[in-house]
Each structure stands twice: as structure tokens, then as C-alpha cells.
Design a protein around this nucleic acid. Sequence first.
DNA 1: TTGAAAGCGCTAACAG
DNA 2: CTGTTAGCGCTTTCAA
Lengths: 335, 335
Amino acid sequence: MKVTIEVVAKKAGVSKTTVSRILNGNYEHTTEETKNRILSVIQELDYHPNALAKGLKSSRTNVIGIVLSDLKNPYWSAVLEGVEDMCRIFGYNLMICNSDEDPKLEEQYIKEFQMRRVDGIVINPTVKNMELYRKMGEEDFPMVVINRKVPGISTNQVVIDNIKGASMAIDHLLNNNRKNIAAFVYQNSNISPWEERVEGYRKTMLRHGYRQEDLKILKIDRQSGEVQEFIQRFIGENPNIDAIFSTNNMLTLEVLKALKQLYRNVPEDIAIVGYDETVWSEHLNPPLTTVMQPAKEMGKIATKLLNDRIHAKPPYKMETVILEPRLMIRKSCGS
Amino acid sequence: MKVTIEVVAKKAGVSKTTVSRILNGNYEHTTEETKNRILSVIQELDYHPNALAKGLKSSRTNVIGIVLSDLKNPYWSAVLEGVEDMCRIFGYNLMICNSDEDPKLEEQYIKEFQMRRVDGIVINPTVKNMELYRKMGEEDFPMVVINRKVPGISTNQVVIDNIKGASMAIDHLLNNNRKNIAAFVYQNSNISPWEERVEGYRKTMLRHGYRQEDLKILKIDRQSGEVQEFIQRFIGENPNIDAIFSTNNMLTLEVLKALKQLYRNVPEDIAIVGYDETVWSEHLNPPLTTVMQPAKEMGKIATKLLNDRIHAKPPYKMETVILEPRLMIRKSCGS
DNA sequence: TTGAAAGCGCTAACAG
DNA sequence: CTGTTAGCGCTTTCAA
């Protein structure tokens, strides 16, 4: 036998209305005594309100959705952790899905979230559904975009300054007397953070007097299954390279593997700076210098912004928060 | 103006019933022609059914929940990945939460999931809410327990054989002529997998003719903030140890750090086997031998089982699936 | 201080 | 083949 608000009301000898008020902490219309009676009946019956009915009626679910693309990457786990922390604080439950960088999937999941009437979503966009993002903005659907900038769109955004991160890395390498710095990146069409890191490399090198022709950028096809070959060939063909700026934490592991195969020592022969701090960075041999991104903080801020937006009244003011990376200096640069 | 099933029905000149049938792929009662008319109206109006209303009425939400405890650990990311994959296949959306090993939180989240009428949950239990688990079993709430065994409870369970994993590790070390093997574990009350790994160590050692007094088990208080001190002191006090079996991947990183500090070489002075394969295992120096757990597979199987259970009719037959770990042999054991 | 009643948007007998 | 109708369990005006 299902226990609904009606059953509670009957047993407490009051109306559903009164029970509903109590449930929602709206005590001002009710005697202390009736309140207590209702409360004890609720306890006794182990009553739990049906959130679907509540949501249907009130058009607020206290659920937010997050669409991510690669949970195996500790960067995203950290973001998720931040989101979770804030959800706990604000009282949201969290729906999660994985776009896998597929715009079709992304669209489908967003639609599903909307059908479930989530109060808002946090999204790391594939940046390939511009029409959809624009529409969501127009329809005032609460959303905050993280990690990748989506240009010309009316939402809150939280991103991390990749140009800055790259520039810190390159500056550090140059300060440690490295002269021939190469940048490695996975060529994945338009993942803006990666592009920005390369751009940061470029700018910083030029600023230090290098010419465009001096730059060495290796774009690696991740899918090809020949990542090692790519890297090793490149290093072979560019024997005078004395430092590598790796724009992705998984890629960094590949670089290390390649260097070991080629018997190149880090940092004596080649210095390395990796992007993204991870649990293992400091345990590698030598410990790895990395650009640390405040991932968890990004998740927290995004959720905070989303919550603000959900409770705000129009006109909404949209904000773009830019977070600063930090350089974790270790032995892999020889300093 | 909100577009509901009613609006669609009006515009298509049919009743809500007919639209509902079409929405749910129930075409057999409808002419091809009306069907198409409805479909095109749906498209035209960009109609999306309200999942709350649907769920309220049909008491099926197509949402499942998962309660985890530490997403930062790649083991859990892998599990989640498996769960997600199957959710995509079965058409579920996923709610996620983090118990953080806190029984109170665990209970709260389970309640919240139930209030949201999720169709079922996958849970890595804290194993400290026995009463609750039992009750859920009794009430036939669809649930599958993963990772940790919960004794005497009527649900599906998917676990990984930890005794076996430990035994593989120890056998391998003994086969490589290690004579003095210690086992390291975080002392976290009753995390059954960790205990089982220690137990596997014990059993295997005894089976190989060692006596109880020969065993060296270091229990480390994770919270104390003195993990390094613990490990280094232990190694100092037990200079004849020539191998360490580490029962947790984060702990393994600590062990490596300690050994480096003490100038002990791996594997020459001390061999190591770690528990849990990770992306970085093969990139450490030397590459780490690990016990690989089929985490993603566990997530997949659990979700499969949950889906079966959700669609099953009583009487339900509960299953406990035990997965086999695999030894990833690398240089850290000197073989 | 309390309750009656009207829905939120959908599904599913049942009837035609 | 299609529609009428009665809810699912809750919130919220409005009246008492």
C-alpha cells in the first residue's frame, strides 16, 4: 500500500494542504500542535514525497544536469567533484551524461535533460551545436558553459586561461636556458583549449624574439594508433630540441614513454612541461613540472553561477569567469 | 506558450490518447496517415514530452541512480564509464552521487533517489547501513551492489575476487625469488576488498610454507597525514624486506615516493606489486606490475543486471557475479 | 489557522 | 481505428 500525502493527511486528521505546507517548511499557518502531529505521522508512516508529482506541479525539480566528455581524464573527475560538492550544498541532485565529443549525442542528452525538466545544466560543449546553444540562450534555459569558450552566446561561462598557462610554461623553460622548445598537441579539430595552448606557445616564443620559422609544433592524430611513432619520428628528425611543452596530460605520458625508448634523459637532454596536474605528476621520475588548472574550482564556480541563475529574475546578467592556471615546478625542467 | 500533448492533439485534430500512442511507438492502432500527421505536428511544434508527467503516470522514469564514493580514483571512473555505456544502450539517464564513505550521506542519497522514483540503483555500499540495505531488499527495490560484498541480503551483486588478485600478486613475487614480502593497506575499518587482499596475502604466504609470524602487514592510517612517516619507519625497521604488496593504487604512489626518499631501488632492493591498473602504471619508472581489476566491466555487468531486474517479474532470482582480476606483469618485480 | 478544488501533463482502461 | 475519462501525487489559489 502506497503512502501518499493523502494518506498522511487522513491519518493526521488534516487536509493535504496542511501537510504540504509542513513538508515545505511553511510553518507559519499552522499550530505547533498540528505541525507536530503531522510530523510524527510522517515519521510513523515513513512517508517520502513523490518528487515527480512535486516537480510536475511546481516546475522545479532540484535536479541539474552535467554533460561531460571524458571522465577517465582526472581533469574531468576533478570538475565533477567540484560540481558535486556544490550540489550537496545547494540541495540539487545531479544527472550526468557523456557526449563523447559527439555533437549528435550532445544534442540528444540536452534534449533528454530538458524533458526531465532539470533546473539547469552545466556543459562542456563540443562547440559543434552552435544553433542549439544559441537557441537555449534565447529561450533563457539556465545553463553554464565550462572549459571551452562558445562565442556569441548569452550564457554564463567559466573557462581557464590557456594562453596564460602556456605562456607560464614556456617562460619557465626559457628561463631555464632551453633554446629549442617544441609544442605537442593532439590534433582534434577545434578543441579550443588545446589550440589556445599552442597559441600561447607561439605568442610567448615570438615575444622572446623567436621567429615564426623557429617554432616547432607537432600535431598528433590521436585516433591513428601511431602516437608513439609520430612522437619518436619527430624527435628523431629534430635532434636539437631541448624541451617539450605537452598540451595534454595523456599525451605527456606518451611523450615520456617515447623518450625512454629513445634513451633521452629528462631533464638533461630534454626538459618537459605537461599540461594538467594529476595525482601521478609528482611520482614520475623525474617529477613532472605541470600547468595546474583549477578544475575543481571551475566545477564549483559553474554550479554556483548556475544556482544563481536559476534563482534570478530577468533581466539576467551573464558572466564569463576566467580562472588562472598555476605552474607546479618540479624536476622535469631541470630547475 | 507551452506545448503539451494537448496542443499537439488539437493541432493534429486527434485526441491526446492517439498522440500518446504514437509517442510511445505504439503504432498498431493508428493509420499510417494520422501517424504521419501527428509526427509532423510534433516536429513542427518542436514538442518534447514532459518526463515528469510521464513518470508520474506510468511509474517508470528510465532513470537509474549510482552511488559511489571516490570519483577521483580512476578505478571508479572506469566503473562509471561502464555504467554509462550500458545506460546509453538501455536508454536510461543516470543520476550520480557521492557518499564519501559516510553512511548518513549514503542513506540520504538513497532516499532522494527513491523520492525521484528512479527505476533502480547501483551502489558501492559503505556497508554501514545494513538495516537499510536489508529493507530495500525486502521491499524489492531494484538494486545492485558492486565492489563490496554485503552479506545476507537479497540483491544482485557484482564483485571482484580480491583473494585471487592478492594471491596472483604474491605468487608472482615468490616465483621471482622474493623471500620477505610485506603487505601494505590503508586501515579503513571494514572496506572488505582491502581486507580480502590482505587475507589473500596471508593465505598465499601460509600456503607457501610461511608461518603466521613471518607475515608483515602494515596498516596505515590514511587520515593521520603521516602516511610517508609510517611507510618510511616501517621500511627502516624491517630492512630485510625485499617486496611490497600494496593494496591500493594511491597507496602505491606513496610507497614509491618513500622508497625514493630512502634511496631504495625498485626492483633491485625491493619489488613492488600494486593493486589497480591505471593509466600511469606503465609510465612509472620502473613500470609497475599491477593487479588489474575489470572495473569497466563491473559497471557494465551491474547495469545489465539492474536492467534485467527492472524488467523482471517476481519471483526474482538474485545473482552474485564474481569477476577475475588479471596480473599485469612489468619491471617493478624484476621479471 | 485550515481546507476544497482545480490543475500540472501524461497514460491507459474502456467504450465506441 | 480513435476518443472519453479518470486519475498519478503534489501545490496553490481562494474561500471559510
